[in-house]
């Protein structure tokens, strides 16, 4: 390692100058040196640019073009005229949406379901990781880990089918029709999710626990600290940064709560609580073919979600000293 000398990197001359108010010629120089950098990079990596062009085209076509197509939220979309040719209607779709009493129910269902999910799925993986961390490596630990991790890889369709089979009065082990009761929908959604993901989420905490310096535990042991005291004063503080990030990410995902499961668990009887924004977008857009309205609802959802993420990232920076990205 000692023999590798840092190879001389050409420092742009603009950076070397003593700091003073940004002069026109300085900015010109900086701009030119960026241009020179780009040219150098192209000469050196032109094959990589060609390679990257295909995935870049993918992102433009399937991610950025759809963002542009959101204009139809402000139009009366007609497939014949296309997204650009259709007639502008201003904010009419949004006025209709916000004036619709269904909207408040949708918003309420979405936010409550997501909030419940974040809160319920937060403590159990931590508990699981702490418990696994206490016991010795051996067949029992391995078994618990393998089994609790497994449901994560079962498909949503299968998990929902299992839930329905277990909870239906005819075939299952209970006698109430839980799925027909709107009041049970959230509990079923959230706890089947906890069942599926607790083992997977625990892995992240296990890694954080593995990163705690063992010397801390050893010296605490010598000082006569009990296991519970060591969890309380060493493990929990060690988990805190990870836990904050997980919680914050969960809050940031409120509006992005999954369509897949809610749609599968839905039936005519529990619709009062199971209809959330994503399922409503799907039905309005693809079943009733009202593209403009569905896009307006979707756009509202995306914008709220983006704002939430920005707020949450700001909070994360305040609490942990660094943001979720950059």
């Amino acid at each position: 390692m000692a023999t590798t000398t840092p190879h001389p990197t050409p420092v742009p001359s603009a950076d070397r100058r003593p700091a003073r108010s940004p002069h026109r010629s300085d900015m010109e120089l900086a701009r030119r040196s960026r241009w020179a950098q780009a040219q150098l990079s192209w000469r050196r990596h032109w094959q990589l640019y060609l390679l990257a062009s295909v995935p870049l085209a993918y992102f433009v076509i399937f991610k950025y073009v759809p963002m542009a197509f959101n204009v139809i939220a402000f139009k009366d979309y007609s497939p014949v005229l296309g997204p650009w040719g259709s007639e502008w209607v201003g904010l009419r779709n949004f006025e209709l949406l916000f004036g619709n009493p269904v909207f408040l129910t949708l918003l309420e269902n979405t936010v409550i379901l997501a909030g419940y999910l974040v809160l319920a799925s937060f403590p159990i993986p931590i508990l699981l990781a702490l418990a696994l961390n206490e016991i010795r490596n051996g067949w029992f630990k391995r078994t618990v880990q393998m089994v609790t991790y497994a449901p994560y890889f079962i498909s949503t369709v299968v998990v929902v089918s299992m839930t329905i089979l277990l909870l239906s009065p005819r075939s299952g082990i209970v006698s109430t029709n839980f799925l027909g009761e709107p009041d049970y929908f959230r509990h079923i959604y959230v706890w089947s999710d906890v069942w599926q993901t607790a083992g997977y989420s625990a892995v992240i905490y296990m890694a954080a626990l593995a990163g705690i310096d063992p010397v801390l535990h050893e010296s605490a042991k010598i000082d006569g600290a009990s296991r519970l005291q060591r969890i309380r004063h060493i493990d929990l503080p060690g988990l805190l940064p990870t836990a904050v990030i997980v919680l914050i990410l969960g809050v940031g995902n409120t509006m992005a709560i999954g369509f897949e499961k809610a749609y599968l668990l839905q039936n005519d009887l529990n619709l009062a609580q199971s209809e959330i924004i994503p399922t409503y977008v799907y039905k309005t857009g693809l079943i009733n073919a009202d593209f403009s309205m569905a896009t307006a609802v979707g756009l509202f959802n995306s914008v709220v979600n983006l704002c939430l993420l920005l707020v949450v990232n700001f909070a994360a920076k305040k609490v942990t000293g660094k943001g979720l990205w950059r």
Binding site: F59, K63, P66, F69, Y282, A294
Partner: peptide, 21 residues
Amino acid sequence: IMTALIFTMLFSGGLIPTYMV
């Protein structure tokens, strides 16, 4: 480029516009 990619995680085009593409 990385920022542009990460932005697609934060803000999605939505179901219907993607369907139209």
